[in-house]
Simulated assay, not measured.
Amino acid sequence: MSRIAYVNGRYVRHLDAAVHIEDRGYQFADGVYEVVTISGGRLIDEAGHLDRLWRSLGELRIVAPMAREPLKMVMREVIRRNGIVNGIIYLQITRGVAPRDHPFPKNATPSLVITARRLPLAKAAKTAAEGVAVITLPDIRWARRDIKSVSLLPNVLAKQEARERGAYEAFLVDEEGMVTEGSSTNAWIVTKDGKIVTRPTGNSILAGITRAALLLELKENGIAFEQRSFSVAELLDAREVFLTSSTSYVLPVVKVDDKVIGNGHPGLVSQKLRALYEKFMARETA
C-alpha cells in the first residue's frame, strides 16, 4: 500500500507530496512541527501535543491553518489511510508561500503538511532493555528552544556526531556547564541519594510532552522529584541516567561519553519509570 500524506487540503501519495519552492519553511525555517506517537491506532497525549503546537504558532505569530477539531479529524484520516497501528504522525505548519523576503508577508496562507509512518516496537523494546550511550556537546542553539521550530540544524549536527561516535543521543551543555536537554529528548538523572532530577522548563529547553506526562505520573504515584539544573559532573556521577521523548518513551542511559553509568545496565528506577509511562500509554489507548 502506498503511503498517503496530507498537503494543504489534499490527500496525496507520499511520493507526490510537495510544497512550493518559496514556502517559508523551506527558505527560512519559518514554521513549527509536532510528532505524536500512535499506539494501538490511538494518538498518545494528543491534547498536550496540540496545546504545544498552538503555543509555538502563537510565539511565531503564525495563524493556525484550521481549528483544532478539524485538524484532529485530518490526523485520524491520515492514520486510517496509512493503516498505522503503532508509529508516529508528523505535523508541520509554516507561514506559507511568499516571495523571499525576511519580514512577514502580508497575504501568505499557512501551509500544513501531515505524514505518518510505522515504527518497529520490537527494536524499541530491545533498545530499552539494553540501554543506550549518550555524548555531551556544547549547546549552540538559539535562545528560544521552547518553540518547537523546524529550525533544527544544530540538533541535526549534534545527533549526527552522536551517531558517528556510536551513541544514541547527544546531551547539550550550556556555557555554565549545565545540561540543557538532548538533541531530540529531555535529560534526567537519578542522584546517588535516589532523587529524580530534570531541568525546569523555560526558554532553554523544549517542554517535552512525555516529560510532562512522566512528571504527572510521578506526582500521582507519590514519587519525589526535583526540577532543577544539573551539571555534567553531576550527570557523570549519577546513579542512573535516562531520557524521554515521544518516540523513545523513557529510555535508560548506561554510558555518558566514556563513563559507564551504574553497573552498565538499565537501572531499577529507569525501568520502573518506563513501566509507569507504558501504563499511562495503555490508559490513553483504552
Results as ranks from 00 to 15, higher is better:
residue 164 E to I: 10
residue 191 T to V: 02
residue 158 A to C: 05
residue 177 G to N: 05
residue 134 V to Y: 05
residue 178 M to K: 13
residue 136 T to Y: 03
residue 213 A to N: 12
residue 122 A to K: 03
residue 153 L to H: 07
residue 162 A to G: 06
residue 221 N to P: 04
residue 187 A to G: 10
residue 147 I to T: 00
residue 125 A to W: 10
residue 218 L to V: 11
residue 176 E to F: 10
residue 140 I to W: 04
residue 222 G to F: 06
residue 179 V to T: 10
residue 224 A to I: 11
residue 209 I to E: 11
residue 108 A to I: 01
residue 137 L to R: 09
residue 162 A to Y: 00
residue 152 L to Q: 08
residue 200 P to H: 06
residue 222 G to V: 12
residue 201 T to K: 10
residue 109 T to M: 08
residue 141 R to G: 01
residue 135 I to D: 02
residue 133 A to V: 03
residue 203 N to G: 12
residue 172 L to Q: 04
residue 216 L to H: 13
residue 160 Q to R: 14
residue 213 A to E: 13
residue 181 E to W: 02
residue 214 L to W: 05
residue 154 P to E: 05
residue 210 T to V: 11
residue 136 T to Q: 01
residue 119 L to C: 06
residue 141 R to L: 09
residue 199 R to Y: 11
residue 135 I to K: 02
residue 101 D to T: 10
residue 132 V to Q: 02
residue 104 F to C: 05
residue 124 A to Q: 13
residue 150 V to R: 01
residue 131 G to C: 06
residue 107 N to L: 12
residue 119 L to A: 10
residue 114 I to T: 08
residue 212 A to S: 15
residue 175 E to V: 15
residue 214 L to H: 04
residue 220 E to R: 13
residue 144 R to F: 10
residue 145 R to T: 15
residue 198 T to M: 00
residue 135 I to S: 00
residue 212 A to F: 11
residue 126 K to Q: 15
residue 104 F to H: 10
residue 167 A to P: 08
residue 143 A to F: 09
residue 155 N to E: 10
